[in-house]
Write a protein that binds this DNA or RNA. Sequence first.
DNA 1: ACAAAAATGTTAAAATTTTAACGTTAAACA
DNA 2: TGTTTAACGTTAAAATTTTAACATTTTTGT
Lengths: 213, 213
Amino acid sequence: MEPDAITSLKIPGSVVRRLPRYLTQAQHLRQEGVEWVSSLSLAETLGLTSSTVRQDLSHIDFQGVSKRGYSTAGLEGALARTLGVDHDITCVLVGAGNLGRALALHDEFGRQGFKIVGVFDSAPAVVGKKVGRFTVQGMTELAGVVREQKVEIGIISVPHEAAQPVADQLITAGVRGLLNLTTAHLLVPAEASVVDARVLASLRELAYGVKRR
Amino acid sequence: MEPDAITSLKIPGSVVRRLPRYLTQAQHLRQEGVEWVSSLSLAETLGLTSSTVRQDLSHIDFQGVSKRGYSTAGLEGALARTLGVDHDITCVLVGAGNLGRALALHDEFGRQGFKIVGVFDSAPAVVGKKVGRFTVQGMTELAGVVREQKVEIGIISVPHEAAQPVADQLITAGVRGLLNLTTAHLLVPAEASVVDARVLASLRELAYGVKRR
DNA sequence: ACAAAAATGTTAAAATTTTAACGTTAAACA
DNA sequence: TGTTTAACGTTAAAATTTTAACATTTTTGT
Ligand SMILES: NC(=O)c1ccc[n+]([C@@H]2O[C@H](COP(=O)([O-])OP(=O)(O)OC[C@H]3O[C@@H](n4cnc5c(N)ncnc54)[C@H](O)[C@@H]3O)[C@@H](O)[C@H]2O)c1
Ligand SMILES: NC(=O)c1ccc[n+]([C@@H]2O[C@H](COP(=O)([O-])OP(=O)(O)OC[C@H]3O[C@@H](n4cnc5c(N)ncnc54)[C@H](O)[C@@H]3O)[C@@H](O)[C@H]2O)c1
C-alpha cells in the first residue's frame, strides 16, 4: 500500500494540529457503535466548518462516501497511519517529579501507541525509586537506553532551567522528537521536532479570554 | 490608567497565543538581570521573525525604545496587564487523579497568579483525602465554593466521558473559563472561554513530525 | 430505469496571518 | 552640535488558512 505521493507530500501545520482531534473523535464514535460520520457533524462537535473538515481530510489517504460521509473505523485507521501512530512509538520520560510521575502512570499513552520504555531523573534521592511499573534510572543510563531501544521521542518534564541541557542529551543520544512540558523554548537541529505542551501558557491564554467578556 | 481604546479592542487569537511566551521570556530575562531585549533577540530565542515580534507587541499598551529595544521589566508588566494576570485569578480543580494531583501540587501556578481555592472529585474514596494543602471536596460543594469565592476558572482533569457534565456544572456555578486537559471537545455558551491543553494530541502531532524526515 | 437528494472532493474567493520594507526616533559619539 | 546607527512602529505585500460555492458521485425511492 504505497501512500499516494501527492497526499503524503506535506500536510500544513494548521491541518496536522487538527488531525489528532479528528482521530480522537473517530475513536469515540466507533467505540459508541457509530459507523458513519459526516463532515458537518464532525465540524459541529469540534467547533469548525464542514468545509474545513473536508479540506483537512483531503490531505489523508482516505475517501468518504457520497450520501453517507466517512466510515468511523476507516477514518480512524487512515488518520492513525497519516500521523504515524498505527504502530508503537518508543518514548523516554525525563524528570520524575509531580508531573512526570503522573505522565508515567498514565496508561492511555501506551494504549494509544506511545510506549514509555524508561523514566530518568538526575536527583540521587529519586533514582532507584519505583513509579508504577518503572524504576527511575539515572541520567548516565539515558543514552544507552535510547540507542538500544531505538527511542524516538523524549518527554521533558524537568525544571525549565534544565530543559535545554536535557534536550541536548536526548537529541545527541538519537531521539528525533521532543515533547516539552516546561516553559523553556528549546533549540534543536532542523531534523528534530519539538512540540510544546505548556499548561501555564494555556492558563494565561485563558486569563485573557475571561478578562474580556 | 485607562488602557488605550484601540490596543485593548481585540487582539487576534494568533497573537494572544504568543503573548504568554513573550511574558515567560521577559520574566526569565529580568530574573537573569537583563534589562533590555530587542525584537530580533526575542525572535531568535522563540523561533519567530523580528517583524512578527514587533507586530505582536504593537497590540499591547507598551512602547519600546529606539536603539535599546524593550525594557524587560516594562514588557513583563505590560504583558501581564494585557493578559489579565497582573492580579490573582481564582481557580478550582476538578478531578483529583494522577494529573489533577500533580497540578494541585504545582506551586508555580499560584506564584503566577492562578490561585487554586478548591480541589473536587466525585469518587467517595478520594473525597476527604489530602492533596498538598487541599482537602478534596465532593462535587456537591462545588457550586457553593465557586459562588462564594467568585471563582473565574475551572481546571478539568477528569476522565473524558465526565468532562462535558463537569464543564456544565462549572459554567452553571458561574465559572467563566475552562482549562480542559481531557481529549473531549467541550461545548460552552459563547460568553465562556475554553482552552485545551491536550497532551495526547501534542504527542500525536509530534508522531507526525518524527515520521516524515 | 430514472429522478431526487445528501454528502463528498475541489476550485476559487475571502480572511487572516506572517513577512518584508522603510520612515522615524532616540542613543552614542566624533 | 551634528552625524551615524540600531531598533522601533507602521504600512503594505506575500503567504497561508479558512470559508463558500458548486460540480460530482452514490444511494434511495418511485
Ligand atoms: N506539576 C505540574 O502540574 C506542572 C504543570 C505544568 C508544567 N509543569 C512543568 O513541568 C516541569 C516539571 O514539573 P514538576 O512539577 O514535575 O517539577 P518537579 O520539581 O516536581 O520535578 C522535576 C524533576 O526533574 C528532575 N530534574 C531536575 N533537573 C534535572 C536534570 N538536569 N536531568 C534530569 N532530571 C532533572 C528533578 O530531580 C525532579 O525530580 C516543570 O518545568 C514545570 O514547570 C508542571
Ligand atoms: N495522567 C496524565 O498524565 C494525563 C496526561 C494527559 C491527559 N490526561 C487526561 O487528564 C484526565 C485525568 O487524567 P488522570 O490520569 O488524572 O485520570 P485519573 O483516572 O487518575 O483521575 C480522574 C479523577 O477524576 C475523578 N472523576 C471521575 N468522574 C468525575 C466526575 N464526574 N466529577 C468529578 N470527578 C470525577 C475520578 O474519581 C478520578 O479521581 C483524563 O481525561 C486524562 O485523559 C492525563
